[in-house]
Simulated scan of single mutants.
Amino acid sequence: MRTLAVAVTLTAALTLFPGTAGAATEPNPGSVIGDTFELKHVETVAGEILAGPATGVSIAIVKPSPTGSRTTTYYFGEYQPGKRVGPDTQFEIGSETKVFTGALLELAVRNGLVSLDDPVSTFIPAPHHAPTFPGARAMTLRDLATHRSGLPDIPPGYNPKDEYTVEKLWEGLDNETLPTAPGATWLYSDWGFGLLGTILAEIFVPGQPEPQFAQAVRENLTGPLGMSATQIEERTENLAIPYAEIDESTDYWFNTAAMAGGGGLISNANDMATWAATTMGIGDSPLSQTLPNTLFPIADGKANTDMQMGMAWQLFSSPYSFAYKDGATNGCTTATYLVPESNWAVTILNNGNDAASDTVTERMGRQLMDQLSPRTGLGLGSSYTS
């Protein structure tokens, strides 16, 4: 039988309230718990996630405070046998990598290196070319960043991912016939973001035989923000083992080559909280002036929904305004929700992914947002009060 363990840390020291943890969720030594209302909801969410294949969960909540913001970070379960999840535990974040790729695009636009409506073909070396659709306009960088390029989700010859070279990327484009016209419809595409990541890597770290996406992210985003745990995937000692079934581990994702911009990073809860806060404009970093631009709508989203697209972020206006991005690999699922009007965010990372896990993680993140975000008007818990 699995047992749950929760460690809670706050960026601002709070008083430990007695009786905040039930018998099933004993805090790890050194934990600091600041609010029983929030903890109750977080424990419920973690319990539901750990009922599936995941053995460990990290949950970070960013909330407003008189000094700007503070972050509560919860840790449950184990990331490797006998090793409890804690502040250093890393998870594969899969498609949440795309918001980092979107941020690189915003930096390139802000610095005058590209325009959103530059044709993709401008950045593909001859004799290769971007695919086209009969009678339609050319594919643009805006299309890649908003899933409206017409490219399918996965390119041919994608596996093994760590051997998908830039030459394979160009050859795949040469041989592709677009199923829809660029800009015409929303079609989720790892391929599009992998291509965008490779284009931006060449812009920020030019002249390399293979795209240096990891270096571009480190030098321009994670390094300046002190996000040392957010990196291109490697088998670090803190990386959670991925699980596809209960008690059945699976392969690591290792999307580390020319498609890395679509899903190649690993991270931890503290780093993802920093990223969420900076994206909402919180903090003194110059990036807190830049990253909020990735939340501006620049294209329509999926048909018959109220979704619009920022740069990788999915934007919604009902029942209140929020931004969303999730991630999934062979054996990890993640979800991040932002409520920028309230400077509130939640991110969930865990090491399980079966047929239901992606939906469960997404639903649990939305549940915490609805229950705890001050935008909902609940007026309860440390997610609301200062």
Rank of each mutant, 00 (worst) to 15 (best):
T305Y: 05
G30R: 12
S149Q: 07
G192N: 08
V99C: 06
P27Q: 00
M311E: 03
G68P: 05
T230I: 10
L187F: 01
G82A: 11
V360H: 07
G263H: 01
G377W: 15
P66G: 13
P127S: 08
D271E: 01
A201M: 01
G310E: 14
S249F: 14
R363Y: 08
L200K: 14
T279L: 09
T329Y: 02
G207D: 12
T9D: 12
Y79F: 09
G102I: 00
P131Y: 08
H147T: 09
Y75R: 02
D143F: 13
G352Q: 00
T89C: 00
D117P: 02
G381A: 05
E167A: 11
R363I: 06
T180D: 08
G264W: 13
T15R: 15
P206I: 14
P81L: 00
T20V: 13
H128N: 10
P152L: 00
I154M: 09
E362C: 01
E202N: 15
R218T: 06
I33F: 13
D162M: 03
Y75K: 09
P242I: 02
L368A: 04
G352H: 13
N175I: 04
T132P: 09
T336A: 13
S31C: 08
G223D: 05
P211T: 11
W275C: 01
G34T: 00
T44D: 07
T385E: 00
E106I: 10
P156M: 01
Y164P: 00
G183N: 10
A201L: 11
S58L: 06
N175T: 14
A103K: 03
M280V: 12
V339K: 14
D247W: 02
W253F: 15
I154W: 05
G47H: 11
Q371N: 08
E233Q: 15
E210F: 15
V109W: 08
Q208V: 00
N220T: 11
W275H: 05
A138H: 03
L196E: 06
A229R: 03
G226M: 03
V120Q: 04
H129D: 05
T71F: 06
T333Q: 00
A23L: 08
A335D: 13
A257L: 12
K161L: 14
G194D: 08
A335I: 10
